[in-house]
């Protein structure tokens, strides 16, 4: 074979280019540690998603330390959950699967991007160093409403993040003079224990209670409210635990107006 010197040189240069490209990609894998979506998370029957240990309840879960898991189900044409909140400085592993057709889970403006194929679970671990807000979109055609499929990922400052949930149970109306209570359940989704203070403000009154909850635990709080001191009328109340607030209104009525209803 009769190959011109210039062409031989170009052949060598082309090989250098190809090897250089492969070397760059390899550097990305071992240097910054970029991992590909692979088959680690296994397969799943899309008809059993609701009973699946991971996807039965979607959302953010704390694993301990700065590690979190987010379980997401994609379907035509939404994500469950559609809004995700994680703290800055965390390492988050997303598990995503599809209930119907192929979708993607793509965090706009980042390199977080995976196909979501029914029957498969996509797993990807991401470090979020800085607070920020990112859109999530589906970039694989999934039917006529494909372009409406979106979500939101918010990375909040570390000190503003918790997995505390607050729910209350309080009467709407109470007869003056009767004892009544406002009950609250505080659950702590973090693995670490939670020590904080719950504050109930009602009318001019303020009650405080120290709360200590184990990791993955919850506490019941009971506030006895002195209706005499409140007097008859509508009284707005607010129960605060950290940044979480629940509020309502308690009507104190005279004895003839009604009973102690609790609905």
């Amino acid at each position: 074979m009769n190959i011109h010197t210039y062409e031989k040189a170009w052949l060598v240069a082309a090989m250098v280019l190809i090897v250089g490209f492969i070397a760059t990609i390899t550097y990305g894998a071992v240097g910054p540690g970029i991992a590909m979506i692979d088959d680690d998370a296994g397969s799943i029957d899309p008809n059993e998603i609701s009973d699946h240990e991971r996807f039965g309840e979607t959302g953010v879960e704390h694993l301990g330390g700065n590690e979190y898991e987010v379980n997401v189900v994609a379907q035509a044409w939404s994500y469950s959950p559609s809004e995700i909140e994680v703290p800055a400085g965390s390492e988050v592993t997303f598990y995503v699967t599809s209930r119907d057709v192929t979708h993607s889970f793509t965090v706009v403006g980042t390199n977080v991007n995976t196909m979501v194929v029914p029957g498969q679970i996509s797993e990807m671990t991401v470090q979020f160093d800085e607070p920020g807000e990112y859109g999530i979109l589906c970039n694989e055609y999934c039917g006529e409403g494909h372009h409406t499929m979106e979500g939101l990922l918010t990375v909040v400052p570390e000190d503003e993040f918790d997995l505390t949930e607050l729910s209350t149970d309080a009467p709407r109306e109470v007869e003056a003079g009767n004892e009544t209570t406002i009950n609250a359940t505080v659950s702590n989704g973090m693995q670490d224990g939670l020590e904080t203070t719950a504050t109930l403000e009602i009318g001019e009154q303020q009650y405080e209670r120290d709360v200590t909850i184990d990791g993955e635990g919850s506490a019941e709080l009971t506030f006895d409210v002195d209706t005499d001191a409140l007097g008859e009328g509508e009284h707005d109340w607010t129960l605060t635990v950290d940044d979480h607030e629940e509020s309502g209104t308690l009507s104190v009525v005279s004895g003839t107006d009604g009973g102690d209803t609790n609905e």
Partner: peptide
């Protein structure tokens, strides 16, 4: 690419 914010990382980085 590398400047494009959070990227999917593997177990390797965790170890490091």
């Amino acid at each position: 690419f590398l400047g494009n914010g959070p990227t999917v990382v593997g177990a390797l980085l965790t170890v490091v």
